[in-house]
Design a binder for these strands. Structure first.
Lengths: 333, 333
DNA sequence: TTGTAGGCGTTATCAA
DNA sequence: TTGATAACGCCTACAA
C-alpha cells in the first residue's frame, strides 16, 4: 500500500490526472459529478498532495525561510511564535534555522534555505553584511527584523530602542535619581548602541553630567549582568539606580544585589529592557521597556505574505512602552 | 540571469548532466579533468542544487519534521536547540511546527509535515492518540520525546519524572520538613502525574501522612503558580515547604510569597522542576530538579539519524538530578 | 568512465 | 469541460 498519487486518485475516480489537479486547486470548472467522484476517491485512498512535487512543478516551495540567532532564547522564541501565527492558514510554511550569532553559520543557513527554494526570507538579527542582504533582496522577498541594513529600510521592522531607553531613564530621573548606572548590551549590536544613546540623551536633557564610571559593558546574558553589577558595587561608585541593557542581564543584577544584601527598589532601582514573559515574575517584578516581540513576528509574517502576493504593505507602528512594576521607587534621601 | 541548473553547469563544463550529478553526489568515479571543469562551472555560475528537485527524484525530502507544543517556551526551545545541533552537519534539515497543545492542531501539523514528505518525525509532548502514533510509526521513523505511547516504548525518550520528584521530596524531608505542599502541573499531562506519584511515594516512604489539603492543582504556567500559592496561604493550612510541579509555576509562587511578606527559604522552602536557564537567577536562586532538555533534543536527533540510516540505536541514560540552590533550608522550629 | 533516456508527482499548455 | 503531453530539476538504470 504505497502512498497514493494523483494518478491513483484519477484512476479510481475514472478521470484524468489533470482533472484531479484542477479540482484540488480550483483552477477550472469541473462537473459536479466528477468532483464528487474525485473527492470520494481521495477520501477512500487517503490521498494527500505531495508538496515537494507541487513545489517543483510550480517553481515555488510554499515555504518561508526564517533565520534567527538563537532558537532557544525566549526573545527569538516569541518572535517565531508571531511569525508562525501570521503564516497559519496561509499555504506557506515557515522553516526556522539558527545562525547562532555567527556570520559564517548565518551564511551557511541562508544557503540551506535557498537550496530549499524558500519563496521568501525573514532574517531576525544577525551579522550578515548589508551587501549580502541587498543581493538576497534582489532575488526574493526579504523582511528584516531587529537589525539594520542600508538600502533596505522599507523592508526593515524595528522598534525605537533609543526612545525606549529614553523612557526608562526619564522614569528614573522623574523619581529623583541622578546617579544612574547603565549596563550596556553587546555593543557590536545596534540595539545596544541605540539604548546607550537613549541613556546619554536622557542624561543630557536632564542636565545630569555623564559619569563614565557608571557605564559598564555587558553582553546581554544573565551572567554578565551579575558580573557587571558586582564590578559596579566593588568600584565604590555611588548610584541609586541602574538602567540595564536587557532583562536577562537585569536578572543577573537582581541576584548580585541580593547577594550583597541590597534591596530592590529600596536601595537600588532597576529598569530592564524587552519585557520578557518572565520579568513580571521576578522578585520584585521588574520595571522594563516592553518590546512587542510577538507582534513584531506577526507583522513580519504578514508583510512577507503581502510581498509574496505582490501587494504593498506597511508595517504597523509598534511602539515600545514602559512597563511599570516594582523594581523602581522614588529616591530616598 | 535565471537560477542555474545542472543542465547549465553541464553545458558550461562541456559534460553531460549525469556527470555533474555524479560529481555532486560522489556516485561514481569521474576523470579529474572533468571534475575540475565541473567545479569551475559550478563556482562560475554560483550553482546550488535544488533540494526540492533532489527530493522528488530520490523520494526523500532530506528533512525531519519536529512537532512541539509551544515554540516560544524555553523548555521546548532548548529541546529544539538540541535537535538542531544533532542534525547539524547531517544532510537533514529539521522543520519545526507548533501544535499548541491542541489535538486538532497537532493532527493538522502532522499532516502538513507528511505533505512535505518529511523523512522522519520527532514528536515532543502533545496529545495525539497512541493509535495515530502507531500508524505513523508504521510508515516512517518516529521518535517520541516527553510523552508516552503504548507499543512505542523503544522509540520513546523520557526521563524519570517520578524519580525526580522523589529526589526533590527526599531533599525537603531530609531538611526536616513534614508539612510539604505540592502544586501539580496540568494533570492530563503524564509528566504531571508522574511528579505527583513521586511526591506521594516520598511521603509514604517517610511515613508522613498525605494531607490532601496540601495538594493544589496548577497548569504549568507562572500565573497558576501564583494563584495556587495564594490559595494555599488563604486556606490557612500550615506548611513549611512547597514542591512545585515546574519552575515556571515556582516563579509565580516566589512572587506570591514575596507579596505576602514571606521569605524564601526562611519561612518557606521551595523546590521546582525542570531547571530552566532562568532558575539560577531567581531571587533567591531556585533549588530544582534538572531535566536535561538540550541533551534530550540531542539524543532524539541522533536517534532519528540512526533510524534514517537503518541502524540501531540506544538512547543514552539521561538522569534527572537535583540542583541545590538557595530556595531550600533546614526547617526552623 | 560517460551519455541517453525515463521517471519522481504535480502543474500548465494546448487541443479537442 | 476534459484529456494528452510536456515541462519542473534531478537521479539512476542502462547502454555505450
Amino acid at each position: 500500500m504505497e502512498k497514493p498519487t494523483i494518478a491513483h486518485v484519477a484512476q479510481v475516480a475514472g478521470v484524468s490526472p489533470s482533472t484531479v489537479s484542477r479540482i484540488l486547486n480550483g483552477t477550472a470548472r469541473v462537473t459536479p459529478q466528477k468532483q464528487a467522484a474525485v473527492h470520494r476517491a481521495i477520501a477512500q485512498l487517503g490521498y494527500q498532495p505531495n508538496v515537494i512535487a507541487q513545489g517543483l512543478a510550480r517553481g515555488r516551495s510554499m515555504s518561508v525561510g526564517v533565520l534567527v540567532q538563537d532558537i532557544s532564547s525566549p526573545f527569538f522564541g516569541s518572535i517565531l511564535h508571531g511569525i508562525e501565527k501570521a503564516l497559519q492558514g496561509s499555504p506557506y510554511q515557515p522553516v526556522f534555522i539558527d545562525g547562532h550569532w555567527r556570520a559564517d553559520q548565518e551564511d551557511a543557513a541562508i544557503s540551506v534555505l535557498m537550496g530549499r527554494q524558500v519563496d521568501a526570507l525573514i532574517i531576525v538579527g544577525g551579522t550578515v553584511s548589508d551587501v549580502r542582504l541587498r543581493e538576497i533582496a534582489a532575488h526574493l522577498p526579504l523582511i528584516l527584523l531587529g537589525r539594520k541594513a542600508e538600502g533596505l529600510e522599507r523592508r526593515t521592522l524595528r522598534v525605537n530602542h533609543r526612545q525606549g531607553a529614553y523612557l526608562a531613564m526619564r522614569h528614573l530621573i522623574d523619581l529623583g535619581h541622578t546617579r544612574i548606572a547603565h549596563i550596556t548590551g553587546d555593543e557590536t549590536h545596534p540595539d545596544a548602541r541605540d539604548r546607550l544613546d537613549g541613556y546619554l540623551a536622557a542624561l543630557e536633557d536632564a542636565r545630569i553630567p555623564f559619569d563614565p564610571r557608571l557605564l559598564v559593558h555587558g553582553d546581554f546574558h544573565e551572567a554578565s549582568g551579575q558580573h557587571c553589577a558586582e564590578a559596579l558595587l566593588e568600584s565604590g561608585q555611588r548610584f541609586s539606580a541602574i538602567f540595564v541593557g536587557n532583562d536577562q542581564m537585569a536578572y543577573g543584577v537582581q541576584l548580585a544585589l541580593y547577594r550583597h544584601g541590597l534591596r530592590v527598589p529600596d536601595d537600588v532601582s532597576l529598569v530592564g529592557f524587552d519585557d520578557q514573559p518572565f520579568s513580571a515574575y521576578t522578585v520584585p517584578p521588574l520595571t522594563t521597556v516592553r518590546q512587542p516581540t510577538t507582534e513584531m513576528g506577526l507583522a513580519a509574517g504578514h508583510a512577507v505574505l503581502k510581498l509574496l502576493e505582490g501587494e504593498d504593505f506597511v508595517f504597523p507602528d509598534l511602539e515600545v512602552r514602559l512597563m511599570l512594576r516594582d523594581s523602581t521607587a522614588r529616591l530616598q534621601r
